[in-house]
Design a protein around this nucleic acid. Structure first.
Length: 429
DNA sequence: TCTGGGGTCCTAGGACCC
DNA sequence: TCTGGGGTCCTAGGACCC
């Protein structure tokens, strides 16, 4: 039996967060919508109307206040729980149509279409997936189809950019791929970031086709193995394959910028304790345990008039743990090492690494089985209370009141339409 | 005044060893 | 006078992704 010809599709939700915000707001149909990052800091999503106004991705909100005002733009704080729920519905719809699938991000999925019967047209299949997603979730997607993931990404770029394609582009022949790459700026290629783009342009490569024409080996020497692989992929030779079972996490982080600057160690200790508690909870959800804890903090890199300070400290536990109490205690010890008075801190975080499955836990020589079981039951009890929706328990070191100055600012949050019974949209007849 | 959060992989350089 | 070379492990920093 011959090996099937490689064929990938990339499905990408259009303006995902902004589209979610429009779902239950028909009044926003043709209005510009933008979604802001935590603390209502920068723009992380724009509706097509907002893009047309020239608002850039990542732009700080305070710099475009005048445009928001003048153009009557609808502004939202990020509502990640809501977006994650809509994402799940989109992914389920895709899987229903084609199970060889890799969820690549909250709004993207790759399909491996190499097993598609030759009697079925990839373009037709993708159009039916696209229609179903729109009908079942209200989200519009674009789909690119090609022999490699990088080319599928490029095809997706075309599907988004040229409405006449109907949202689906199949790079069926090398000639068609070549034609698109000639129209595509080199910086639009998946895997080519701003740094590499600047260097390539310096060397005279403006379009994706310019890069695709290079010899992968000599470019590997000058750049890196990743650039070489990207060139191979642009030439139609697959280097990246479908990853259906995501590899287990190697590290997990919880970090935040503060709603207001922190200058007191007590407030920082509360923030760090809270992040330690969150990330440990997240780790337990995936049935993992950690053996290495890192705490970091920093002042603002944007303020020239104040001194910059950034530091991190980490330590190995010795016996892998998923006990919030241990992680909080350790994080606070680490904070002692790096805390300095006299700075205005904007951000801190706690990172857990050397993650291993909690089930593989073997007790050390000095550990007590009963004590360990007790600890596991306590953590399970805390998690079940916090997941019950009936309330929340937390540790005293996270701060007694739920209103602290360092808490994230989310002043323009939309309702949790699909994830909270009390905020379900109501239809009045 | 106001600039996100959470990841992965690669590379270069230092320490250490034989 | 004259100071190898290769392997491994670790870490910090760079670059990229969404």
């Amino acid at each position: 039996m011959s090996t099937p010809k490689p064929l990938y599709a990339l499905i990408d939700c259009n303006n995902f967060y902004a589209s979610c915000e429009k779902l239950f707001r028909p009044d926003l149909d043709h209005r510009s919508v933008i979604v802001l990052s935590n603390n209502d800091g920068c723009v992380v999503a724009r509706s097509k109307e907002a893009k047309a106004l020239g608002i850039k991705m990542g732009e700080p909100a305070f710099k475009i206040e005048h445009i928001i005002e003048r153009e009557n733009i609808a502004v939202f704080s990020s509502n990640y729980a809501f977006y994650a729920d809509i994402s799940m519905r989109v992914m389920q719809t895709i899987e229903h149509h084609w199970p060889d699938m890799e969820i690549y991000s909250i709004d993207e999925a790759f399909l491996d279409l190499s097993r598609l019967p030759s009697t079925t047209s990839p373009t037709e299949l993708c159009h039916s997936i696209r229609d179903a997603i729109y009908q079942w979730t209200g989200i519009t997607v674009s789909i690119g189809i090609a022999p490699t993931k990088t080319l599928a990404k490029a095809a997706n770029y075309a599907a988004k950019k040229y409405p006449a394609t109907g949202g689906v582009v199949h790079l069926e022949t090398q000639q068609r791929a070549q034609k698109l790459l000639q129209l595509m700026p080199v910086g639009e290629i998946w895997g080519i970031g701003p740094r590499t783009t600047a260097k390539l342009i310096n060397m005279g490569m403006e379009t994706a086709a310019d890069l695709a024409g290079k010899d992968p080996l000599s470019m590997k020497k000058r750049f890196s193995v990743n650039v070489a692989r990207t060139i191979e992929e642009l030439q139609g030779n697959p280097c990246f394959h479908l990853e259906e079972d995501p590899a287990p996490r190697k590290q997990m982080v919880c970090s935040r910028s503060f709603g207001e600057r922190i200058t007191q160690k007590e407030a920082m200790a509360q923030a760090v304790s809270t992040y330690a508690s969150r990330v440990t909870e997240k780790m337990r959800e995936q049935n993992l345990q950690t053996n290495h804890v890192t705490v970091f903090l920093r002042t603002s890199p944007f303020n020239d008039s104040l001194p910059y300070y950034s530091n991190a400290a980490s330590a190995t536990i010795g016996a892998p743990s998923n006990d919030t109490r241990e992680i909080i205690a350790m994080a606070n010890q680490l904070l002692d090492y790096i805390w300095k008075d006299g700075y205005r801190y904007v951000k801190a975080g706690v990172m857990l690494s050397e993650l291993t499955p909690a089930s593989s836990r073997e007790l050390g020589l000095w550990e007590d089985r009963q004590e360990y079981d007790k600890q596991q039951r306590l953590m399970a009890a805390i998690d079940s209370i916090n997941h019950s929706g009936k309330g929340r328990v937390w540790f005293a070191s996270e701060g007694a009141s739920r209103k602290q100055e360092w808490k994230v600012k989310r002043e323009r949050l939309s309702p949790s339409y699909t994830t909270d019974w009390s905020e379900l949209p109501v239809v009045r007849l």
